[in-house]
Amino acid sequence: MPHDHPHHDNHLDPMDARVRALETILTRKGLVDPAAIDVIVETYAHKVGPRNGAAVVARAWTDPAFADWLARDATAAVGSMGFTGRQGEHVQAVFNTPQTHNVVVCTLCSCYPWTLLGLPPVWYKSPAYRSRVVIEPRAVLAEFGLDLPPECQVRVWDSTAELRYLVVPLRPAGTEGWSAERLATLVTRDSMVGTGIAQAPQ
């Protein structure tokens, strides 16, 4: 091939080139709209995050009727706050108690309640977390800095495409009379996956 064209040293990662190729084929066939892809990426990279889930948890802490609804039909309860899964998945809320700590994993891939927590963190997607938390949850939680009392049982929930879990952590002591908005600031992402607990008030 004659090199009569300008040559630069731009080089695409091979995966980058393949993804561009897929997108080109699908766009040409009218199966995707590049603008729609941009909106999806923008939404999940920047707009949707754990603040949604924190609002749900804080409301459950302050509104017993909502907590009851969340326990019975979390999909409808979070839907009433505008958080609806785009893939038609159901949400189940699992409530921590002094006797039971809940932790969530997806052993198959990385199913996660996107609309409530955003996209999963790197550790949630790692083979180590996905395989180990089922076998030795206490050891994994200890690595997250969470040392549970021996009398506290650990329940592990395995997410699927159709059913995603939200952990409702215990409300921290010393927050009596707090508003839901203020309480939400104590609800961390990790506390809603079960690898942490809600923060204590400063």
Partner: peptide, 18 residues
């Protein structure tokens, strides 16, 4: 950040769109 490279974001968006 959920993505380490733009192509990861792109293939994520592509899959969700499909």
């Amino acid at each position: 950040t959920p993505f380490d490279a733009p192509w990861q974001a792109q293939v994520f968006g592509l899959t969700v769109a499909l």
